[in-house]
Amino acid sequence: MNIRQMTFDDLPAVMAIERETFPLDAWSEGMMRGELAEQPRTRHYVVAEVDSEIVGYAGMAAAADQADVQTIAVLAAHRTRGIGSAMLTVLLDEARKRGAIEIFLEVRSDNPGARSVYERFGFEEIGMRRRYYDDGTDAVVMKRKLHG
């Protein structure tokens, strides 16, 4: 597996993963282009490749001493292989490099698998955003302090 910075050339593969992973509330290509346009100023996006195929992507926003995981997605056929965890590790490292002292994220309340991954990484639940997702599902807000 190889993790590298996402480029505009990666968007066709990334958008296919986005639509497969988040069919009810996928970001548009325009939204993703907007995120990449802010890279590296306030954003950091990566893709994960297996045998030169993009199988996942992740991104974060960082400003001042706070960072936010914007998205993490891995193709279903490649889940449970540590790809998401590897990309999250890269985002946490980048947040530290940018001077963030804490990092936040929202995760669907109906996604216990993702929540358990975040908990293993030291994220703690700090609140709930009711009906946050387009289909009315709540988002669990989680936070982790970053050290050194």
Results as ranks from 00 to 15, higher is better:
3 I>P: 09
4 R>L: 11
6 M>I: 06
6 M>W: 03
7 T>H: 06
7 T>K: 15
9 D>W: 09
9 D>Y: 12
13 A>F: 12
15 M>V: 07
15 M>S: 04
16 A>T: 09
16 A>S: 11
17 I>T: 12
17 I>N: 09
18 E>Q: 13
19 R>G: 03
20 E>N: 14
20 E>F: 05
22 F>Y: 10
22 F>W: 03
23 P>M: 05
24 L>M: 13
24 L>F: 13
25 D>L: 03
26 A>S: 15
26 A>T: 06
27 W>K: 12
27 W>A: 13
32 M>D: 00
33 R>Q: 15
33 R>E: 12
34 G>P: 13
36 L>H: 04
41 R>C: 05
41 R>Y: 06
41 R>N: 15
41 R>V: 11
44 H>R: 10
45 Y>G: 02
46 V>L: 09
46 V>M: 11
47 V>C: 06
49 E>Q: 14
49 E>D: 03
52 S>Q: 15
53 E>Y: 06
55 V>F: 04
56 G>T: 13
58 A>V: 05
59 G>L: 01
60 M>T: 03
60 M>Y: 02
60 M>G: 08
61 A>C: 02
61 A>P: 00
61 A>N: 11
62 A>K: 12
63 A>D: 03
63 A>S: 12
64 A>H: 02
65 D>C: 00
65 D>H: 07
65 D>I: 00
66 Q>A: 15
66 Q>W: 01
68 D>S: 09
68 D>R: 09
69 V>P: 05
70 Q>H: 11
71 T>W: 03
71 T>L: 06
73 A>G: 12
73 A>L: 09
75 L>D: 07
75 L>M: 10
77 A>M: 08
77 A>R: 12
80 T>A: 10
81 R>C: 11
82 G>A: 08
83 I>R: 05
86 A>W: 04
86 A>H: 01
89 T>V: 04
90 V>G: 06
90 V>A: 12
91 L>A: 02
92 L>S: 04
92 L>H: 01
95 A>T: 06
96 R>E: 08
97 K>V: 05
98 R>L: 03
98 R>N: 04
99 G>N: 07
100 A>P: 04
101 I>A: 13
101 I>E: 13
101 I>N: 14
102 E>Y: 11
104 F>S: 03
106 E>Q: 01
106 E>Y: 01
108 R>V: 14
109 S>M: 00
109 S>R: 08
111 N>P: 08
111 N>L: 01
117 V>L: 15
118 Y>R: 01
118 Y>N: 05
119 E>F: 00
119 E>Y: 00
120 R>T: 15
120 R>P: 08
120 R>Y: 07
122 G>T: 01
122 G>K: 05
123 F>K: 07
123 F>N: 01
125 E>Y: 00
125 E>A: 14
127 G>I: 02
127 G>P: 08
129 R>L: 02
129 R>W: 05
129 R>D: 05
131 R>P: 02
133 Y>K: 02
135 D>H: 02
136 G>V: 12
138 D>L: 01
138 D>E: 08
139 A>H: 09
142 M>Q: 10
143 K>M: 14
145 K>M: 14
147 H>W: 14
147 H>L: 14
147 H>F: 12
